[in-house]
């Protein structure tokens, strides 16, 4: 199959249109962050830099970002470990109940957030009797983040096969050594991709968070929810969103560089 110039052109145009639609609402957010209207009405009646100034003085927003980063980082780490273990087990072994395990991994993301949320809320409070806190959010997030790591890692493992590992073992390397020097480097970009998606998923999660966060735990989405209801705070929320989008380029770019580099060497 060779795509004609025309086909390539059409595909490119369609891609362009899709990207335009993807960025249209983000442009609205950007413009509204300068709007004089506190209710984000369109078109903006006037422009101002006030919200940008106020956003950077907002301790609440900064704390919320830090809380969210902290939760997302730990949840991602946990899901990286658990997701890798499961993928290795499922890919390298055939055993009874293998399908059930893969279903179990998918379930927390496949079932709607509100169900995961109320189930965990109920379990934490009435079964385990623990106070909702930042830890309960982390546990909840890690649970549904495992799947993104699992998806990426198992796809990579399937492609890799086991020959390098066997060679390593034949040369006398132990299991840990083999994992550290042979398996892990080959998984690195898959882990990065899975981890990045897990981080994003956790960072923006609101439904499960609502049900598992202690009253004092304010993640960024919860802070945003609160502030959309405070008089004249809505434009500040837009500023935060714009900043986040801009800041997010860095980790995505780094991940891309690493993944891209590996592809070149293959």
């Amino acid at each position: 199959m060779r795509l004609s110039r025309l086909a390539r052109g059409i595909l490119g145009a369609v891609t362009g249109v899709i990207l335009l639609v993807i960025y249209l609402p983000l442009m609205v957010v950007l413009v509204n962050s300068f709007s004089t209207s506190t209710s984000l009405v369109w078109p903006p009646p006037g422009l101002t830099l006030e919200w940008w100034g106020r956003a950077f003085q907002s301790e609440g927003a900064l704390e919320a970002v830090l809380t969210s980063v902290q939760i997302a980082l730990i949840a991602t780490l946990v899901s990286l470990v658990l997701g890798t273990l499961i993928s290795l087990a499922l890919q390298r072994f055939a055993f009874f109940g293998r399908e059930a395990v893969s279903l179990l991994v998918i379930l927390p993301i496949a079932l709607p957030g509100i169900i995961t949320g109320i189930a965990l809320n109920n379990a934490f409070r009435t079964i385990l009797g623990v106070q909702l806190s930042i830890a309960t959010v982390i546990v909840a997030h890690a649970t549904f983040c495992i799947v993104t790591v699992f998806n990426n890692v198992i796809a990579r493992l399937r492609r890799l096969g086991t020959s390098y590992e066997e060679a390593s073992a034949d040369l006398g390397a132990g299991l840990w050594t083999t994992f550290r020097l042979v398996t892990f480097p080959q998984l690195r970009s898959a882990l990065l991709a899975g981890g990045l998606l897990a981080f994003a998923l956790s960072f923006d999660e609101i439904i499960v968070t609502t049900f598992t966060a202690g009253a004092g735990v304010k993640t960024l989405p919860i802070w945003i929810l609160d502030n959309l209801f405070r008089p004249s705070q809505a434009p500040i929320v837009n500023v935060i969103a714009v900043v986040l989008v801009l800041v997010s380029i860095v980790p995505i770019y780094i991940a891309q560089r690493i993944a891209g580099a590996e592809k070149v060497s293959r």
Partner: peptide, 15 residues
């Protein structure tokens, strides 16, 4: 203090 949002403001949201 336990309160509705907007009842106990210490300037952290808006100085």
């Amino acid at each position: 203090i336990l309160a509705w949002p907007g009842y106990v403001e210490d300037g952290s949201n808006d100085p």
